[in-house]
Design a protein around this nucleic acid. Sequence first.
DNA 1: ATCTAGGATGAATGCGCTTACAAGCGTATG
DNA 2: CATACGCTTGTAAGCGCATTCATCCTAGAT
Lengths: 374, 374
Amino acid sequence: MRLQAYARAYPSPRESLFVSTAPTVYDVAARSGVSIATVSRVYRNPDSVRAETRERVLTAGRALGYVPSGNARGLASRSTGILGLCFPDYSDPDTEATEAEDEDAAMLYSDQIIRGMERAARRHGYALLIAASLKGGPESLVAKVAGRVDGFAALARTVPTEELEVISRRQPVVMLAGPREGTDHLDHLDHIEVANFDGQKELTRHLIEDHGLRRLAYIGSAEESPDVEARFRGYLAACRDGGLDVGPEPDLRVGMMRQAEGARAVDVLCASDRERPEALVFANDQMAVGALHALEKRGLRVPEDMVVTGFDGIPLSRLVRPALTTVHQPTLRIGEEAVELLVKRLNGARDAEPVSLMLPVTVVRRGSCGCGKG
Amino acid sequence: MRLQAYARAYPSPRESLFVSTAPTVYDVAARSGVSIATVSRVYRNPDSVRAETRERVLTAGRALGYVPSGNARGLASRSTGILGLCFPDYSDPDTEATEAEDEDAAMLYSDQIIRGMERAARRHGYALLIAASLKGGPESLVAKVAGRVDGFAALARTVPTEELEVISRRQPVVMLAGPREGTDHLDHLDHIEVANFDGQKELTRHLIEDHGLRRLAYIGSAEESPDVEARFRGYLAACRDGGLDVGPEPDLRVGMMRQAEGARAVDVLCASDRERPEALVFANDQMAVGALHALEKRGLRVPEDMVVTGFDGIPLSRLVRPALTTVHQPTLRIGEEAVELLVKRLNGARDAEPVSLMLPVTVVRRGSCGCGKG
DNA sequence: ATCTAGGATGAATGCGCTTACAAGCGTATG
DNA sequence: CATACGCTTGTAAGCGCATTCATCCTAGAT
């Protein structure tokens, strides 16, 4: 029963860099002449111990370099004080070269969510554990995270549905982005999404009604992404409302939705042998920015010769010239709300009805559609 | 002796959202008719169990929604599979309003480190735990992190020195950024920094020798930051080498080093009643970008009327017009190298000599100094 | 048929901590 | 002076898993 612990030799603190085995409550207890229960109390709930005793314990703890083991704590108290986030690995191994180019912006989305979650988690006394799904094997990312946190958020389609189904029976999980529908078995999970449809619809309406544009072109994604599809549906809805004649498919679907693809869209849609659209409606800002550059090269002025819009409201959208008209997503808030939801569940509302948040977006009218100062 | 565990009732998986108490090895063992040792083996080292048995266990596990407890695992195996990162909280509570403005860029630095660490950690099979020092109380951030990870990195001056001193006796710690000197007691820690001095010196030399500029102004930080100070010293060194007459202090020190401060620097240094400098050398990109805007407002052309340079090489620096001449920091690499260092320690080299890495930087010549296409 | 090596499994122990519960003790109360 | 109450501290029992050792079983060798 750990008796030998009491006999353990205490190396002078500076004796070696790494003590062979980290000090434990037993060591601190022995050194300060109290029981391990008291040591535990000192670190966990200092006020429950007499001041004099407390100081003695703390002194011993410092001398030994004692740090409570999170594992043992978690095990004994059945909670970790950690929230988790699982997100997809956006990095594209093929483009290691152009990495610096786009990646910065590419991951901004998950970066912001991380930031939002971290901040909110901190406010509630939690730390944040993050893990991206590794490209190689589906090597149960979630299980690893799930086993170590009190609850976690998962970016849509990061985690196999069935796995989530199992795990969500044991701890709070909130799904981020992606529509609720389609994720059949997961409708008992809390869920946060962004008003993709409404945003794109309102932006498109603006182009049609306020700017009187009639020939629009939409550039979407070839990959299956619920968010991007919702945007496209918003676009369609506005077009129909405005009496425009549109097909059921985007004018162009691209792979990665990066600047290069935006530029390519310009090449395709502004080819001289076809009627040029009046406006390019992009499914995200990055492509739109790429298009801006490509249009400049072609000598086409924005917005005079061509209107361009994006989606997301990344910082860049404000800085390019002309500034980009776009739909601003409250990315930080997604992370924050996720934490709030998790914390609420953890604080008792475990069996409350599943919550589904739809965060509002803002249409930001700037130069690239003819509004603002340009 | 947990005997009652074997008698525990097994609710049908779909019976309730949250089973009252999460299933454990005991539950899975009972359900599949094996011992807990075998259950453990199945999840930990599947090949050591006969295929048939394994399947039986896995089936039971799935049915119960079993996820191994990271805490128990960590406790029993004395390792967590998690690396940590402690970083300062950059958010400025006073500027909640202008938040959206700058914050994006503001935290980019730590974001990139997070990203770099996460990626490298994943490669080595670790997850990443992140925690920012909370503004309010110094509420032992580190202890919380340290108790839960196998090793961690700390951004300079995030963590009280003495605390680090204690903790580093028990697990690998690597300091990020900030010079090694001055952190007296911590010279046994691994340490990664960036060639701030060299970078700023080379950039400044470029302005002086290649562009023939003589009247430079340096805008630094009022807060004590070793990195920023190193940059200033690099600037001074180049000035002296170039025979320029410079004082021991920056021409201006600002608080937060954001765009607003950059704009303010323009107001101060380009006031009509004083001789205007030929170049504004900023300690970071954000201020430089702010200055670019302010100069545009004043009708001053860059680089014809005023040369502007930054430091960091944030994505934005490439996108503003004119593109910003700057010193590019390998921020991602800082994170990656940190993980490599930690992993190396964890794989045996615990008592190896402390490593100190100085990552190289790159001077990026663009339009704002008169190079490049503008 | 007997012996043995090796693989598969079970029993038992402990990882470091939290937390009832009980015990000790000093002081206010009757 | 006995009883009771409150505060501090100790005792002991796990938390869920990994792991060592012992045991059992099977197949191959003799």
